[in-house]
Design a protein around this nucleic acid. Structure first.
Length: 474
DNA sequence: TCCCTGACGACGCGTGCTTC
DNA sequence: GAAGCACGCGTCGTCAGGGA
């Protein structure tokens, strides 16, 4: 017996015949029951039926931080699983020997990887760009029988709400620490549909992942050009060569700060490097000379969260030059004031925390404002906004920001400091060359994201009986 | 071989106080 | 009232190792 007494808060009567090993209210919540009811209207199988091989990550005693090396075989962690694929932004490696020792958890391009602890149910497919890797203990690696199911379709399903609720339902609400067991993963219900539909949805994911790899390549090219033009590899070498634990500062280099951290050699070297770029092909300007208008945002009262349609962008909603506005908090219209309003083409700069992220606002749907952690500005027409952000995001730009944050209890860039950030301004054509690579990369990232979203939505439509079969012939 | 448990650092958010 | 400062707190992700 199962009787839903109330939707919100969730109150459900569950008969003892339906209770097996899990008895929590969360497991039997109305939300999960509704999703399950919808899912099982379809033909489905247990995940185990299509699994050829399952391997968990190594145990804690098998892999320690002391095993990490500078170069070698990458070890994937949950944070590397991004948007149904893998992004090695801050990779860790183990040696070939260690990789051989942990041969059970080796993973290859095309494998499906699922997170079991921490953030549960993150599921990605290893892209072609990663030939071989290993796993940490939070992940498991799965190979399926591809004659039984299109694996890209399967990954789209796992990432849609009907896959995610199962991972959350099974993996959370445990006595001490949440996590998915092998048996729970085997028991995940997977919908069965005809090959043509699987291929159609799987193709969207394949195309999305390919576009994403292309976008990453363009970003890499833009960065390489920036490094070349601003000789940032020289700066990096110079900084890496520094072994001294002390530094002499001339009084002319000292400004309003008197703490040693602010005058670390790497910061001084960076300023020296920026000044050395000054010449016919490069002018050093202050950010305030480049900006048309700049402001940081506002902090709406948290009691207003969810009470409107204005998207409130926070620093966590920006990554790799892009805005992720799918999960932004919404606030009332009264906060849509000029100071915080986001317009197309604005450069958004994180100024709190580690002040390392930024984005350009493009194709924003609806009204959006930024909170106090973000400084937004427009650049004058003679400068390329993508180039300016790319510089601020580069080694040199980051060092300038870090210099201000050094030794401060509260990491925060003041307006005065932002205005005085030094920007090496190169020829406009070269700015556009670099900026356009980042712009094009962002466009491809957005298109990729759209395709990944469509793939997930298609699976949901399929389960809910709303999938338009005529799309298969288009 | 796999699950379970515990600890902890990094980080960002929220709140309230102080200063200008 | 805006800007800046201080700190508590929760979440996330990772690391480690005991035990069935």
């Amino acid at each position: 017996m199962q009787v839903i007494v109330n939707e919100n808060p969730s109150i459900v009567w569950i008969g003892s015949e339906l209770i097996e090993d899990k008895i929590t209210g969360q497991y039997n919540s109305v939300q999960y029951i509704r999703l399950e009811d919808q899912l099982i209207k379809n033909k489905f199988i247990r995940f185990e039926e299509i699994i050829d091989e399952y391997n968990g990550g190594p145990m804690g005693f098998q892999l320690h931080t002391s095993d990490y090396v500078n170069q070698g075989i990458p070890v994937l962690r949950t944070k590397d699983l991004v948007d149904l694929s893998v992004e090695l932004e801050d990779p860790i490696f183990i040696s070939e020997e260690k990789n051989e020792e942990l041969k059970k958890s080796k993973t290859y391009s095309g494998d499906i990887v699922i997170s079991k602890t921490g953030q549960i149910g993150v599921c990605s497919i290893i892209p072609d760009t990663i030939q071989e890797a290993n796993l940490n203990q939070a992940l498991c690696n799965i190979r399926i029988n591809e004659e039984k199911m299109d694996k890209h379709f399967l990954v789209s399903f796992f990432n849609c709400k009907y896959g995610q609720y199962q991972f959350q339902r099974e993996g959370t609400g445990k006595a001490v620490q949440d996590g998915l067991t092998k048996e729970e993963i085997y028991n995940i219900k997977v919908p069965v549909c005809n090959n043509k539909v699987q291929k159609y949805i799987g193709n969207k994911l394949r195309e999305g992942i390919a576009l994403k790899e292309c976008a990453k390549e363009l970003r890499k090219l833009g960065n390489e050009l920036l490094i070349q033009v601003l000789r940032l590899d020289d700066l990096e070498k110079e900084i890496n060569n520094q072994k001294k634990k002390y530094n002499w500062i001339s009084t002319t280099d000292m400004k309003d700060r008197f703490d040693a951290e602010h005058y670390k050699e790497e910061f001084i070297e960076n300023i020296r490097h920026i000044n050395s770029l000054e010449g016919n092909e490069c002018k050093i300007l202050k950010l305030e000379d480049i900006m048309d208008e700049g402001n940081y945002g506002i902090l709406p009262s948290s009691s207003d969260y969810g009470l409107g349609d204005i998207k409130l962008l926070r620093s966590t909603d920006m990554k790799n030059g892009l805005i992720n506005d799918t999960e932004t908090i919404k606030v009332p219209d009264k906060y849509f004031i000029k100071k915080a309003r986001v317009n197309s083409g604005d450069v958004l700069l994180e100024i709190k925390g580690n002040a390392s992220s930024g984005a350009i606002s493009e194709n924003i749907e609806g009204k959006m404002i930024v909170n106090g952690s973000i400084f937004k500005f427009t650049v004058k027409p003679q400068y390329n906004n993508y180039f300016i952000l790319a510089y601020l995001d580069s080694l040199s730009g980051q060092l300038q920001k870090k210099q201000s944050l050094a030794n401060s209890i509260i990491s925060y860039l003041s307006i005065d400091y932002i205005n005085n950030l030094l920007i090496p301004v190169i020829d406009k054509n070269m700015q556009d060359d670099i900026g356009n690579k980042f712009k094009e990369s962002n466009e491809k990232f957005l298109k990729s994201k759209q395709l990944l979203g469509e793939a997930k939505k298609d699976v949901e439509d399929l389960i809910e009986g709303n999938f338009d079969m005529s799309k298969l012939n288009s």
